[in-house]
Structure formats: C-alpha cells, structure tokens
Design a protein around this nucleic acid. Structure first.
Length: 574
RNA sequence: CGGGAUGUGGCUCAGCUUGGUAGAGCGCUCGGUUCGGGACCGAGAGGUCGUGGGUUCAAAUCCCGCCAUCCCGACCA
C-alpha cells in the first residue's frame, strides 16, 4: 500500500514548549510531537502519528509471532470474577486488579493479563494430545491499576501488550517453544533498534520458575540490572549473588552485650561503635503463611531482597508495624541470639565464615558485639538473601559485576502446570490418561517498547525514529510555493510510487517551523526543497539520526533517497 | 497509603506574602510586511482563577473540606 501523508491535513498538534507534567524524554516528546494526549493519570489517547508508530511496533511483533507459528486472536478486556477466583488470583492479585460490578452486581475485572481466560478457553475445546502444542497470542489493551502511574507510556495504567500463551504435553515441548519465543523477542528488540539485554528475572505475580526479562538499557529505566562481561545478566531482585566479605575481625571474641540507647539503624550503630556497616549484621523480621516468626540476617551494608526471602520461605511477608507489636519484638534491635521461641533464623550465605557479628539483642536499647554462629546461636538455613549489586562476583564466571538500568520491555515465562492444575485444564494423552497442560506465557509491552525506543533515540531537537517504526520514512519540506512546491510535489509522488512512506509538509508555514516540527516528530530522512538550491539543481537531504545534511542533485535525489531507505529497512528486516 | 508540590484563556507561567473590578509570552482570528532553523507591525477573540463551603463591605489572594495532576517514598529494623 502506498503511504503518503500531507501535513496540511494531518492531525499532529505539536507543542513549542515542554508540557509541565512530563519529565522523561519519551513522555515529553510524545506529547510535544502531537503523538499522545493524556486522558487521566496513566491513561493516554494515541493521536494519528502515535497510532501509526504503535501499529508499526505491533506489526513487528505480529510478524515475529506469526513466524514461529503462534496464532493471533483477541480476547475480551472485561473478565468475570469467577475465572479469577478459580485460579486464586482474585485474592492474590491485589489492588492492581481493576475490579468493577455490572448492573446485576456481578463482579468483573478489566484484564491485566489473560492466563485465566485462555486456559478456560483452550481447555473447553482441546481434548487430545494430538492438538498440541498450541500457541496463541493477542495484541490488546490491558489495564493495571498501578500504585503510581508515571513516565507517560512507560508505566501507564492502560497500555497495549502482546501476550502469547502456549500449551504443551510436556516440559520438552514447552522448552522448545520457550526458546523460539526468546529468540523472537531478541529479534523484536533488534528490529525496534533497542539496545537490550535478556536477564535472569523473577516471575512475580505470574508464577512459574523459568523466566527471562528483556531489558532495554536506559538511564530512566525503573529496573536495576547487574551484568558481567561473560554475558550473564540479571535483574538485581532476582540475581543470584555471592557477596564478597572482608570482616575486620577474623578470630572469635567474647559475646558482649552493650547498651545502645536510642540506636535503631545500622548507620547509627556503626557510627556509635566506630566500625563499618559492613561489620554489622542487619536482622529483618517476617512471618510465614502459618504465622511463624522468621529472622533474616544480612550484612549490615546490604539490603534484604524480599523476593529472595520468599525463595527461602515460601509466602513469607515482612512484618508491618502492627506485627511488631503483636510479636512483641523491638524493631531496630533484632538479632539471631535468643529470639522468641520458635523463630526461624535464616542468614545470608556470605555471613557463614564471620565469627563476630554485631547484632541487635532483641531488647530495645541493647546490641550484641561478637556473636558467633554455632556458639551463641544457631542458623537454621544459609541462603542467598540480598539484592545483587555492582562489584559482587558473577555467579557464572566469578568476574566482577557491573550495574545498569533498564526498561523491562518484555518477558517470557514457563508456567508449567500452575494454571492448568488450579483450573482443572487437561488433555488426554496417548495412553488415555488425563494430564494438565504444560503452559508458557510471553508478554511484550507494545506501548512501553515504543517509549523505550524514544528513550534510546532522541536529541535536543526531538525524536530520531529508527526507520522500522517511524510514522513515515521520508519527509519532503518545500520552503515556498510555485516552482518549489511543484518540485516538492513531484518528489513526493515519485517517492510514493517507489513504495516509500512519504510525508510532505505542504503547510503555509515558515521554514523554521517546518524544520523544527520535522526534527521533533523525527522523520528519519528529510528532503529540503529550497529556492537557492533549486536554482542550482540541488536539494538537501538530512539524516535525522546523525543530523548530517548532504547536497544532492535534483535528478538523482529520488534514487539516492530510495537507496538510503532501502539500506535502513534492510537493517531491520525480518 | 505516607511525604512534598502544583492547579489562573489552548500551552508555559506571573499575580497570592500585604484581599479592592484578571495579566504576559506563545498559540488562535483578521489586515499588512516577511520567508533556509519556531518572523515583525497593527487590530481582535478567548478565563465561573480546579471545586464546595467559610471569613469579609469585598476573595485568584485568607481559612477549612474535597477533587485532580506531578515528584519522592512506601522493605531502609
């Protein structure tokens, strides 16, 4: 299809000034370039240009899904509560699940994801192993009532997502498709011109054990990563880590109970004792689902990672103020020595060799110096408990980890039988036995990816779209009427005939306005048709990515630009 | 949910401390001059000052409630 646009009738209301509400480049530029407008916090309308880009991103995702045999469909936004009570997530999902009632007071939710719906759907119509494996996907609006929507499209409440679900007879089949999906996700990032890293992650709310996140590297990213030159990379919340320890005291010392009135933080304690935070041990308290008190001991200069706490004790929750009162323990003076009866003490594995811990005495106003595991207290379990950080050892090669920030643009999960078992979704195998589906699910944040592309491709002038998702490939800017307009129209038609997506700025605007809008919107190539140049038979071609301008003969400008476009397209072809 | 900030023409903001009849720039309309990096001159249109209440002769301005938006935090024991 020939795509040609006229700025004179394109609804792209650009803003000269930065909107007060936007901080990040992607948010600011999407608003300024007239691509989106806010409807409410975290909810955005896509205007024609933004919609064009969003569709281009979606088309790339679609091509990659189709290529690995996943089939497109579309499910409903509105979902009945029964499906969610069946899986248990009506209670587990929390306030992010946007709940509502219909006129009969029946409970519904706006789908934040579609595992429940698809599992039921497929279960109803799939009986035999002969019909498996099966992979289905949709590109659809999702709703999550985020605690704090922010950064425009990066963390919205209503957003566009591609979600795929696969059903298999066994783990081997799942693994095969999971690997195909992972490769497809890598290609999607590449075609979006995103600098990215696949990272080890936690599966969180979705469930399952094996999962990989695809992170677009960006300073503005909300996720912290650690990575190693050997290729290993992980989200800090999920990164296995080995914390380097170098305690100041290496020989056992006598246990010494010291008064520490008014000291409640590690920093205060370390200062009062004249030691480093590294030589203290921080104890955090949680409770298991059965109500058992759990103490987590971590090096004083590190943070307990609640995700890992959950790995050590499934379902553990950290105590809130009310819990502290109920258990009658002093927040700010906790320690592994003589905890309340029945307390489970779990310590970070890095502390195993330390013989003189500085810890709380479980009595307000007192701490213990020189506590030694095995002598003064017992540790029930040594575990990996803290957030990884740059400087730690790589769990793969032992090298030193580096840090980065990223935007989570997509994630693949092996769900196993979590949903199929909960919801009784099964098929009949070759022996006639009923077996639960082995499932995978795979999400791409389509609107978020769009924002991530801008985070990586912008400058002071505006957006610099990679050609794969640009709202058009070439812009023709006539700086006048008469001959100039005629020449520009000729170019515009010639390019469109050659299958180039082209836009002409045929508005009655001054040159400066056209230049600035063109840069702001970010057309990859711009052809400037001006009076002087035209008199000499020359035009100017600008490459938005580099802002390089080249003078080109009028006769061959179409060829030159077609070649440039084809060259760029080739970089992002399927 | 806690903390901070903001809400005044379409956009960016001033005015609020010290109540007294609503402003600027940009944008928009009309006329003219301009025309290679967001032009200039002239003439206009456009605002229940987020919202509800209170104080007052008088409230954009002071007080209270609510709503909305943005930022920080929500696990730093």
């Amino acid at each position: 299809m020939t795509v040609a646009l006229r700025m004179s009738n394109l609804y792209a209301p650009t803003l000269k000034e930065d909107p007060a509400e936007a901080e990040l480049a992607s948010h600011r530029l999407l608003l300024r370039a007239g691509m989106i407008r806010k409807t409410a916090a975290g909810i955005y309308t896509f205007l024609p240009l933004g919609w064009r880009v969003l569709n281009k991103v979606a088309d790339i995702v679609r091509e990659e899904m189709d290529a690995i045999g996943s089939q497109e469909m579309v499910m409903t936004v509105l979902q009945p509560a029964e499906l969610w009570t069946e899986s248990g997530r009506w209670d587990d999902y929390g306030p992010e699940l946007m709940r509502l009632k219909d006129r009969h007071a029946r409970d519904f939710c706006l789908g934040p994801t579609h595992e429940e719906l698809i599992t039921t759907l497929v279960d109803n119509d799939t009986r035999s192993y002969r019909e498996l494996p099966l992979s289905l996907y949709q590109i659809q609006v999702k709703f999550r009532d985020e605690v704090r929507p922010r950064f425009g499209l990066l963390r919205g409440r209503e957003f566009v997502m591609k979600d795929a679900y696969s059903f298999h007879v066994d783990q081997t089949s799942l693994q095969e498709h999971y690997d195909e999906m992972s490769r497809a996700y890598g290609r999607i990032c590449e075609r979006l011109a995103l600098e990215y890293r696949p990272v080890v992650a936690d599966s969180g709310q979705i469930g399952g054990k094996v999962t990989t996140e695809f992170m677009a590297l960006a300073e503005a990213g909300e996720a912290e990563l650690v990575y190693c030159e050997c290729g290993w990379a992980a989200n800090v919340e999920a990164a296995e880590t080995r914390v380097p320890r170098s305690p100041a005291v290496s020989e056992p010392v006598a246990l010494d109970k010291r008064p520490t009135p008014g000291l409640h933080t590690i920093a205060e304690l370390a200062e009062a004792w004249g030691i480093s935070e590294h030589d203290t041990v921080k104890t955090m308290a949680g409770k298991s689902p059965e109500g058992r008190l759990v103490f987590f001991c971590v090096p004083g200069d590190r943070e307990l990672n609640p995700v890992k706490a959950g790995w050590a004790v499934s379902g553990v929750e950290l105590l809130d103020e009310a819990d502290f009162k109920e258990f009658g323990i002093p927040k700010g003076s906790l320690g592994p020595v003589d905890p309340p009866a029945g307390t489970l003490v779990i310590a970070d594995a890095s502390l195993k060799g330390d013989v003189a811990w500085g810890v709380g005495a479980n009595e307000d106003g007192f701490h213990l110096y020189g506590a030694q595991p095995g002598r003064d207290f017992e540790v029930a379990q040594w575990a990996d408990l803290v957030f990884a950080q740059p400087g730690d050892e790589c769990p793969d090669c032992g090298g030193e980890l580096l840090g980065a920030r990223g935007i989570e643009v997509s994630q693949v999960f092996q769900l196993g039988t979590k949903y199929s078992e909960a919801m009784g979704a099964s098929f009949t195998d070759e022996n006639g036995d009923e077996r639960p589906f082995v499932m995978g699910c795979y999400g791409v944040g389509v609107s978020r990816s769009l924002a991530a592309v801008i985070e990586q491709h912008n400058d002071d002038g505006g957006i610099a779209w990679p050609i794969s998702v640009a709202p058009a490939e070439v812009a023709v800017l006539p700086l006048g009427d008469g001959e100039i307009a005629t020449a520009a129209e000729g170019l515009y038609n010639a390019l469109a005939d050659r299958g180039i997506e082209v836009v002409i700025d045929d508005r009655e605007e001054r040159p400066g306005v056209k230049f600035n809008d063109a840069d702001l919107i970010g057309w990859p190539f711009q052809i400037v048709v001006g009076k002087k140049g035209l008199a000499e038979g020359k035009l100017e071609v600008k490459d938005r990515a580099t802002n390089q301008k080249t003078s080109v003969d009028l006769d061959c400008v179409v060829e030159v630009v077609v070649d440039l476009v084809h060259g760029e397209r080739a970089k992002f072809a399927h």
